[in-house]
Design a protein around this nucleic acid. Structure first.
Ligand SMILES: [Mn+2]
Ligand SMILES: [Mn+2]
Ligand SMILES: [Zn+2]
Ligand SMILES: [Zn+2]
Lengths: 143, 143
DNA sequence: AATCCGATGAAAGTGATTTTCATTGGCATA
DNA sequence: TATGCCAATGAAAATCACTTTCATCGGATT
């Protein structure tokens, strides 16, 4: 699926008349082989270790591109940093965020999704996207 | 309930050894008679119309106090501004946010809340708070 | 009224982006 | 392969939304 995402991004680049560059390749590689829920700064620092020539602005702009291309999702967990996570075609999940250690777990619940649809439908509201986050203490942080 | 919240804030002020001031009274009045989900800047501008002597920093600090006192809740809907909404003792609700006109509707769903608890429990996670927001088009913006 | 110390507001500081701009470099074309 | 165009890059500057500082003000207690 790393291959699949590279293909999606290459197609996106081509279809938009953008250019394939060394930096974009490197950033995409690094992003795809990273933990999920990475902040721009975290990815930037990780990249600098091997490629001191890549600028923060390029990482920032490239992650935006990934989001536009549909291979990344921008997230805010309230810690003041924008995070990006991998997303696959048609995939969706929500999060449990530990307020002590910062750990982020994922979950899916079809019943909740269904109830959301019903709530929206009952008001004539058309859902484009949603966010559901449970904040608290993870099993490790409860001691 | 406007009276009730003023009482709660007055008690909070007293119990913390803080001072009752003209500014706090004015800001609380304005906040309580405002639409829900107000940003600091919106409240500040609204206040300036009548009270040009109130500073932004005071509005900012006073809204934080309201949150600490339990009569306001700080929210982020992804538009880059922190918003504050009125909250009552033990009340909770989630939101439908229109991405076109910015309108915010509220809803409560006990079944969803229950499912959240079950998800957390199954992982040993202790929920402190959560946020559930449905983004999309409100009934008016769907044309 | 005097005193104490929290409250206020104008201005400065912060931190995370976001934009600018001079320079670089894909890549289509000759 | 050489040329030209214009997108891409990166260092630095600018923004934005707070957040803090600090000199001064003003409730509340004595
Ligand atoms: Mn995730
Ligand atoms: Mn609300
Ligand atoms: Zn934890
Ligand atoms: Zn709308």
């Amino acid at each position: 699926m790393k291959r699949a995402k590279k293909k999606i991004f290459a197609d996106f680049i081509a279809q938009r008349g953008l250019k394939s560059t060394k930096q974009r390749d490197i950033i995409l590689d690094s992003f795809l082989s990273s933990d999920r829920h990475l902040s721009i700064e975290e990815l930037y620092l990780k990249l600098r270790a091997k490629h001191s020539n890549i600028g923060y602005a390029t990482v920032y702009r490239t992650l935006k591109l990934f989001a536009e291309a549909g291979i990344a999702r921008e997230m805010q967990f309230g810690d003041g940093q924008t995070r990006y996570e991998h997303v696959g075609e048609g995939e969706h999940h929500d999060h449990l965020v530990c307020t002590r250690c910062g750990n982020i777990e994922e979950f899916e619940n079809e019943t909740i999704e269904q109830l959301q649809s019903e709530i929206a439908a009952s008001r004539g509201f058309l859902i484009e996207r949603h966010r559901l986050e449970l904040y608290g203490l993870c099993v490790n942080c409860r001691k």
